[in-house]
Every structure is written in C-alpha cells, then in structure tokens.
Design a protein around this nucleic acid. Structure first.
Lengths: 209, 209
DNA sequence: GACTCACCTATTGTCAACAATCGTGGCTGA
DNA sequence: TCAGCCACGATTGTTGACAATAGGTGAGTC
C-alpha cells in the first residue's frame, strides 16, 4: 500500500514511467484489487496521472508545474508559519532550535552540501506545518505537496553555499516564531520559498521522456 | 462514480452517516470493486473517514475543524486572488463583472437571502481560483476544499443583509484585480474569508450525530 | 511504396465468491 | 446482579476469473 507511494516518491520509478497493474501486483505480492485502490489514492494525491482504459503514469512535472507547486507552498507554508508563531508550544520551539543546531553541525561537517538537498530541509518545514495546529493545512502540505516535491529534489539541487543560506533563513523564521511575531514569520517563510521558486525559474529546462 | 461524491456533497447523506459498501453498491448498481475505489478517492479528498475493518463514514466536522478549513482557504484563496490580479485576462475580468451584476439582480429580487447561501458565492470564488492560472492551487480549492465546504453550507447560513455585504466585498476584490493590484486583492480576499471564519467562531456549537 | 482496415493481443474495467476481522448478543460464573 | 468470555452474524478485505476497450500488427489495396 504505502510501499507503492514510497517507491514513487523515492524515485524508484522515474517520472513518466508507465505503471502496469499486473506488473505492480506481482511486484508487491498483492492482487490487482488493492493495488487499484492504491493507484486511485495516488491519483488524487497527484502523484500519478491516470487516463481511462490506458493506464497510470508517474507524474512528470515541467518547470511551469513546479513553479505552481512553489506558489501553492508559498501560500500554505506562509500561513503555517503565521499560525505556528501563535500556537507552537515553547517546548516545540526549543526542540526545533535543537534541530537547527544539529543541522548546523551537519553542514560544517559535510561542507554545506548535504543539508539542503537531504531531508533536513523537509524536517524543518515538516515541523512548522505541524506547529500550525491546523491538521487540514498540515495534511495538504505533508501528504500531498511534500510528496510531490520530494520526487523532484534532484532537480532542485542546491548551489554551493545554498545550505548555509537556507539554514540562516530557517533561523530567522524560527526567531520570528519564537517572538510570537506571526506576520513576520509568514513574510520570511514566503520569501524563503520564493527564493526556491526563483532559482527554479532561472534554471534551464530539463525535460525527460 | 461521481454520483457518490455528489450524493455526499449535496447532503443526501448527512455527516456522520455510516456507509455500507454492499448497500451503496446496490444503490448505484455497481459492484463493490469500483465502489471501493470511489470510497478511497473520497477518503483522500477528506469527504469520508475510513477506519480499517469497520467502514466509512461521512465526515463530521466540528466548529474547530471548520475554522481550520477557513484558515486554509484564507491562505490559498488569498494567493489565488493575488495571482488572478496578475494573470486574469481582461475578458475574464469583464465576464466576472457581469456575473456580479447578475448576482446583484438576484439579491434585490430575493431580498438578499438567496445569494450568499446558494451557489452564487461559489461561482465567484470558483472563477478567482481558475483565474489564478495555477492549476494545482485551483485543484486543491475546487476539488477538495470547496466540496467539503458545500457540505456545511447549511451551517453557514447568512444573517439577513449578509448577502449585500458579501456582494460588496466581491466587488472590491474584483476592483483590485481589475487594477492589477495583487497585494490588495490578496488582502481583501483574506479579509473576506476571515469574516466568514469569525462568524463561525461566534456561533453556538451545533453538533450532530 | 504508402495508406487503410480488420484482427489480435495486451491491458484495464468489472464482477461474484472466498477469507479475515470486528462488533454484538447471550451465556456462564463468581 | 454484574463482569467477563465465547460464539455468532455482519461487514470489510482480498482474490481470481471474466468482459470490454485501446493500441499495435499485418495483410490487402490503391
């Protein structure tokens, strides 16, 4: 069930790949019934595109669609940061501070490369989404958009030194949250994501098929 | 397929209702296989809550969850309004102006009651979402959140005179879009939705079972 | 040689039967 | 009388087989 989603998100199936029901059923050792249900779920989550009587393919996002993804994240994560500033517990904020400290250690050890590309960035955003105290908002971000984003992390490869920059931005956002300044937290988060979007827009198109 | 979703959204099944697979299968004249796929889809769309080995129920949102819905809409529709101000065609803006004129006619004819409760409000927000030019953003709003919202329109019953107020706010938003003022359009849209949320918060709890 | 049409294969869509799990009701015992 | 246990019924989860549709392939014709 979740195994299929993981296989897609982790890039085991590259974007655009045709998914045969019978093949997948054998691969995961289940019958086609449950598998079709899993496919429907991933279709709604926008990880697969299904055309009737033809089959399912792993979504293949062009740069335009990635820009759309970032625009949507900008709105939702901005709101999440604002709400987190109002609602996150002092304990959760302290924990998040600890997380960023660990990230800093990783960065200096790995010379800046690892942080942004790897799960560290997701960790931070993950906690902010949860910290919003809004389970609907958090659900849309974590269950839908982040899964989509992870498929394309390879294309969002960080420029050298981007890791330190990202960490700095994370620290600024957390500082705003810590001071319970909702509007500032929202503004900083939106900028943080907009930077990612701009980096994307300036990138050469890399179409695969 | 879509018939089940329509039946739920239109309130044919009231919130909290237990949905039996066999009953629904007979009702819609299909087998349990396709029906289960439909259930999974509606589960992801958050219209049904499914607990394993027990069954599916129509979601039953308490006021807290409705507040979450409005908070999420606020972020997404605000962004949609901002983008619409940048991207909507002059033609689409003119059409939307015509829609609001027709709404005004309906209001004066029906003495203000019909507009806000009925589909008129959705029409406006629907077009803004589309006007954003962001199909992901529009999809989340139209396919997920609005369906959820429509289930609870009865609880959001407008106070007398709210229809005129809503129409006025719609006109202000459209004016900002027409002047290509993205930030203003976002601000006004967020306020427009926040008013709905505040009305909700001040409302007595009406739990159904 | 290129185009058209019919067939054929492979894949998706659907169905009815079987297995597994949960909730309920009644029974038993203290 | 009430608590706990057991068995039964009902509902969900799963499976394999059958039907329908799409795309490719080959022969035939212009």
């Amino acid at each position: 069930m979740a195994a299929l989603q993981r296989a897609i998100v982790t890039g085991e199936f590259s974007p655009g790949t045709k998914l045969s029901e019978t093949d997948l059923a054998k691969r995961f050792g289940v019958s086609r019934g449950p598998l079709r249900e899993a496919i429907r779920r991933l279709e709604i989550r926008r990880l697969l595109t299904v055309v009737p009587n033809v089959g399912a393919r792993v979504v293949s996002l062009d740069n335009q669609q990635l820009v759309e993804l970032f625009e949507t994240r900008e709105a939702l994560e901005g709101q999440a940061a604002r709400l987190a500033a109002e609602r996150m517990s002092d304990q959760a904020i302290a924990d998040l501070q600890g997380l960023l400290d660990r990230h800093a250690a990783v960065i200096s050890a790995a010379d800046g490369r690892a942080y942004y590309q790897e799960e560290g960035d997701y960790d931070f955003h993950y906690r902010i989404a949860h910290g919003s105290g809004n389970s609907l908002l958090a659900g849309i971000l974590l269950d839908d958009l982040y899964q989509l984003l992870r498929m394309y992390r390879f294309r969002l490869s960080a420029a050298h030194g981007r890791a330190e920059q990202a960490l700095l931005e994370h620290r600024q956002i957390l500082a705003a949250i810590s001071e319970r300044d909702g509007p500032l937290a929202e503004l900083l988060m939106r900028r943080h994501i907009a930077r990612g979007r701009n980096r994307l827009a300036g990138q050469v198109e890399v179409d695969q098929e």
